[in-house]
Structures are given as structure tokens and as C-alpha cells.
């Protein structure tokens, strides 16, 4: 027989290890990226990633040009567009699910959203390529465009945000809602001034995860965005995101070209970190505002 104290101690050790592992893993990945990028940063120099004329990489730094700013802009534009579109839709769906849907509908609806969250991204990409892109092509241009990317990403992060928002709304203490009802608040007032503020943390977590998924998504974006390295002058213009660039070129890249792709991966990681921190700050400051 093992004593309860022993069990507790073992469990604590296991939990410490798994928590430590998550942190260490992130550091290892970061150092790996930094190490692989190092040759590129040394041979090409950080300035050329911003100041070069274009993105036409070559294995030898001197022959190529390595500007990645247009791809950074494309990643930001696609991510921002998708988050702006998906967030209100997702929170609306979560509110419907939690407060308005009749019980007979809420169950199946939630199942469908869960299924959507599990659809592999390449399937979304394929659907985008054969259905969405030809539809957008009727508006002029190639159809493969920033807009196609935004729409596909919206579809992909919608279920993620919906499920997390719903979980946050469900965990609002029932006493809050009962108190609101006792005060004679309408359902909408209850949602607006009790449920949403109380679920704020979970909603922001959903948005953070959605943002991360949108910025990091590769296959679907690669298939529908057209992959032209340029600053988009309209929503219908094709763009290439950092992730698509890495996926398109990594298999065949040698020397400094390969290192430059790792640099763009590093930039993407920093970008996602920045976005997550920014959303967390937003969360904190809106929290102060509420209680202040």
C-alpha cells in the first residue's frame, strides 16, 4: 500500500516535470530557431531583411535579396482580418448556445462546432481552393487572395473561439445570474453587464488562441492566398504569409536561403509572442477599467 502522502509527493513531482517540460520545450525550440537563423543573420545581416529590394533568395547571401516585410504585413493583415471577423461571430454563437438555444438544439449545435474545430486545416484549404477561390475569382483577379485567406482563417478560428467563449460563459457562477434575475434585469442586460464581464478572462484566452492559430496556420493559407510576395493593395490581391513562404521553399532551400527561412520563422514566433502579450495587456487594462 502507498500512503496518501507518498501519492501526493509522486503526483507533485510528475506535475512539476510536465510543467517544467512545457517551459523547457519552448526554450529549446526558441534556441533551435535562433541557432539555425544565426548563419543567416550573420551572412545576410538583419538590415537586409528590411531594406533589400525584394524576396528572391539564393543559397549564397551575396546573390539573393531577402526582404520579408511584405510577408510580415501579409501575416498581420490575414490574422487581424480573421480575428476581427471571427470574434463577434464566435461570441455571438457562444451566447446563443449558452443563453438562447433551446436545449434540444444546443447539444447538436455544440457537437457541430466541436467537429468544426477538429477539421484538419488541409481540408479547409482544399475546400477554399475548389469552392471559395473560384467564387472570389468572379469578382476579378485570380481569386487566390488576402480575402480568401481571411475568410478561410475566420472559418478555422471561429469554432476555437466559440468553444472557449462558451466554456467561459458556462463557468460564470450561477449566483451572479440568479442575482441579476432577482434584480429584474432583462436577459440581454444580464448578458451585457453580468455574464460577459465575468467571463472576460476566458473570452480573451479564446481570442489569444484564435490569433495564434490564425498567425501560424500554413497549409490552408498556402492553398488560397496566391503566395505572391507583395504588399496587398486590395483585399483581392494575392499575398504570401511567412508560414506559406517557409512551407513553399524549405524543402528546396540550401545555404543562406535556408537560414533566411529560419529567420522568418523566428520573426513569426516573435510576432505571435508579441500578439499574445498585446492581447494579455488589453485584458489586464480592460480589467482595471471595469473594476476602477
Amino acid at each position: 500500500m502507498i500512503s496518501p502522502q507518498r501519492v501526493d509527493a509522486t503526483l507533485l513531482a510528475a506535475l512539476r516535470i510536465s510543467a517544467g517540460l512545457a517551459g523547457v520545450l519552448l526554450l529549446i525550440i526558441f534556441f533551435f530557431m535562433a541557432a539555425e537563423s544565426w548563419a543567416g543573420l550573420r551572412d545576410i545581416g538583419p538590415l537586409r531583411f528590411v531594406l533589400d529590394a525584394s524576396w528572391h533568395p539564393e543559397p549564397a547571401a551575396a546573390n539573393g535579396s531577402f526582404r520579408i516585410t511584405a510577408m510580415v504585413a501579409a501575416t498581420l493583415a490575414a490574422t487581424a482580418g480573421a480575428v476581427v471577423l471571427a470574434t463577434p461571430l464566435a461570441i455571438g454563437a457562444a451566447l446563443f448556445l449558452r443563453f438562447y438555444a433551446p436545449p434540444g438544439l444546443a447539444g447538436p449545435f455544440k457537437r457541430i462546432v466541436e467537429l468544426l474545430a477538429g477539421v484538419p486545416s488541409v481540408v479547409y484549404g482544399f475546400w477554399g481552393l475548389v469552392v471559395l477561390v473560384p467564387l472570389l475569382a468572379t469578382l476579378g483577379g485570380p481569386g487566390q487572395s488576402l480575402l480568401a485567406g481571411i475568410l478561410i482563417l475566420t472559418l478555422m478560428i471561429l469554432p476555437t473561439i466559440t468553444l472557449l467563449a462558451h466554456a467561459a460563459l458556462v463557468s460564470v457562477p450561477p449566483a451572479y445570474l440568479q442575482a441579476a434575475a432577482a434584480l429584474g434585469m432583462s436577459r440581454w442586460t444580464t448578458i451585457r453587464s453580468v455574464a460577459l464581464p465575468a467571463a472576460r478572462g476566458g473570452l480573451f484566452t479564446g481570442i489569444v488562441l484564435g490569433t495564434g492559430r490564425a498567425a501560424g496556420e500554413t497549409m490552408a493559407v498556402l492553398m488560397v492566398c496566391g503566395n505572391i510576395v507583395q504588399l496587398p493593395d486590395s483585399l483581392l490581391a494575392p499575398v504570401r504569409t511567412l508560414t506559406a513562404n517557409i512551407a513553399l521553399e524549405m524543402a528546396y532551400a540550401l545555404g543562406d536561403h535556408r537560414a533566411a527561412l529560419f529567420v522568418s520563422g523566428l520573426v513569426l514566433m516573435l510576432l505571435v509572442t508579441g500578439l499574445v502579450l498585446a492581447v494579455a495587456r488589453l485584458d489586464a487594462s480592460s480589467g482595471r477599467f471595469r473594476h476602477g
Partner: peptide
């Protein structure tokens, strides 16, 4: 106007 990866993507 469009840059593709593999043959399948080009065909689609």
C-alpha cells in the same frame, strides 16, 4: 498572379 507549390495545387 499566383505562386503554387506542388503540381496538384497548380492543377486545382
Amino acid at each position: 498572379d499566383v505562386v503554387i507549390g506542388d503540381n496538384e495545387q497548380g492543377i486545382k
